[in-house]
Every structure is written in C-alpha cells, then in structure tokens.
Simulated scan of single mutants.
Amino acid sequence: MNRLRSLVLATLLLAGAVTPAATQAAGCPAVVNSRVNAGWSSYRSGDLPTARQEFEAATRRCPGHVGARTGLGYVALQSGELLAARRWFNGVLQANPNEVDALVGVGLVAWREGDLPGVHSAFTRVRRLAPDNAEARDYLARLPEGVGPAPKRPALVLPDTTVYPARTRGDRFEVRTTRGWQPFYIKGVNLGAALPGKHPSEFPDSAIYARWIAEMAEMGTNAVRVYTIHPPQFYRALHAYNRRHPDAPLWVIHGVWIELPPEDDFDHPEWEGEFFAEMRRVVDLLHGRADIPPRPG
C-alpha cells in the first residue's frame, strides 16, 4: 500500500501537477528567480539533487523566496523526508497562509503519514481557495466516510428515569410497544462488515446497505445482528428504513469486538479498559453521539 501511494505521488508530482503560483519574489535579484525556475525544471524532470541545489542556492540569496521554499518542501517529500517537507511547507504558510501549493504539500505529507484528518483539513482549505484544484478534488475523494470535523449536535440531556426499549423476561425477549411490553421472537440475520469476495476494508456503500436491509425485511427478518462497529452508511441506511417502517422496524443487536487479552488474562487492566471503552463507543454511536475516526479492520 505504501509503495502504491509513493508511485501515485511520484506520478502526480513529476507530471507537473504542482505548479507554484508565483516563483517571483519582490526584492530578490533576478538571478534568484532564474535559479528557482531552474530548480522547478529539474524537479519536474526527476532530477531531485539538482533541484535541491538550485532551491538552496536561491534561499541563501533570498531566504523568504516562496517558490524556493515550496520547492524544497516538494524535494524533501519526494525524497521521503516527511518531517523536513512539513517544516518547509509550514514555514511558507506562516508567512503566506493562503499559499495553495504549500497547502497541497501539507495535504500530501499527511497522506503519506496516514493522517486522514490532516488530509481532509489541508485539502478542504485548498478547495476553498482554489475550487478547481485537481489535487484537492482527487485526495478528498479518496477519503473514507467519517473523516472531518464532528457534526454539531445538541447538548446531552439525561432523562429523570431510565427508559429502555427491550428487555429479557424469563426465557424470552420483550419489546416496549404502545400496548405495553410484548413478547419478541427474534428472526435475525447476521451481517458481516465487508463485501463478499472483497478486502475486509472495502465496505458496502449506502445503496448496497439499503438494498440488503430491504431484502432482509422482505424475507421476514425482524432483527439484524452485527458483531462490530460498521461504517456510518450502515447506520444511516438502517435508520432511514426504520423511519419509513415505524410499525415493522428492523431491530439491531449490536456486538462489541475485542481481541483476546495478553496470555488469556481477562483481568488485564489495559485489555479490560479497552473493552469497556469499546462498549461505550457502541452505545454512543447507537444514540448518534459517537465521533469515531476511521480505523483499519
């Protein structure tokens, strides 16, 4: 995966996708601008050592030259020097917060680091400044659902008394209805987290979830069981179906996924803490109050 990302990035940059808006710098000698232009020519031809030499020579004569500093950021990025690349790009943005090419560089560094919220933040800013920017459009489209700022929601107000929609009584389940508690015989379907024949991280989209849920209901199912947290589109599709069918909703039986503890020690404090944290995440997401960043698996 990292090799693929590197190849995509190399193709993008060497094809000349990054073109600094201004290589000229006020107050800098003309020879400096010439060296910056030469640096970008070398960069686009794949000659990174020469590009670095030209950009460094330009910054020695004119330390604030935006084109040279941005160029050094991209040379560092192409060379796998992510910390140096971020430092160059952030230095440009401190003096020029709306410098699109440096913002693109920050987004590309975040992508290489696997920092998806950082990718979203940088390229969202790029899109505001340059709505037609191809890199912003491309990388934002690659992000999975759920990346970005949390939605605004009203403050949590706890009820005076605990109200619950389902319970066990004796050897059966019951659900609360307008007629009081009624016996509930579960006719459920287990739903895995991935598409058949696909990689586990290749989740269905909203349309597929909506179709599956409708087909479950058509076969007489009244509950769907999931063993772990699913992507947001599952919960949206289920919520949409239940709003359309208030008299015959699909109930969800939600599991909590946890790996086995170290040395099978179920009293291990770190393992137990993570187990309870995952329980809280499941409860929060079922009530629409969870902000869970994308994660593998």
Rank of each mutant, 00 (worst) to 15 (best):
L4D: 00
S6W: 11
S6T: 13
L9Y: 02
T11K: 05
L12F: 08
L14P: 13
A17Y: 08
T19S: 13
A22W: 00
A22N: 15
A22F: 00
A26Q: 13
C28N: 01
V32K: 10
R35Y: 11
V36G: 10
A38Y: 01
G39M: 05
S41C: 04
S42I: 08
D47T: 02
D47H: 02
L48V: 03
T50D: 14
E56C: 02
A57D: 05
R61S: 14
C62D: 04
R69Q: 11
T70R: 01
L72F: 10
G73D: 14
A85E: 12
A85M: 13
W88R: 14
Q94H: 12
N96Y: 12
E99V: 07
V100I: 12
D101F: 13
V104L: 07
V104S: 09
G105D: 05
G107K: 05
L108E: 06
A110K: 15
A110W: 13
G114F: 00
P117Q: 12
P117Y: 07
G118K: 06
G118S: 10
H120D: 01
V126Y: 02
V126T: 03
R128V: 00
A136P: 01
R137E: 00
D138R: 02
A150C: 05
A155T: 12
L156S: 09
L158A: 13
D160H: 14
D160E: 15
Y164E: 13
T168Y: 10
F173Q: 08
V175Y: 13
G180H: 04
W181P: 05
Y185I: 14
I186P: 03
K187G: 07
G188E: 14
G188K: 15
A193P: 10
A194Y: 04
P196G: 14
G197D: 09
P200W: 02
S206E: 15
Y209A: 10
Y209F: 12
A210G: 06
W212V: 10
M216N: 06
G220E: 03
Y227K: 06
Q233D: 03
Y235P: 07
L238K: 06
L238T: 01
R244E: 07
R244C: 00
I258R: 06
P262G: 08
F266K: 01
P269I: 03
W271Y: 06
E272N: 03
F275D: 11
F275W: 14
V282T: 07
V283W: 04
P294Y: 00
P296F: 08
P296Y: 09
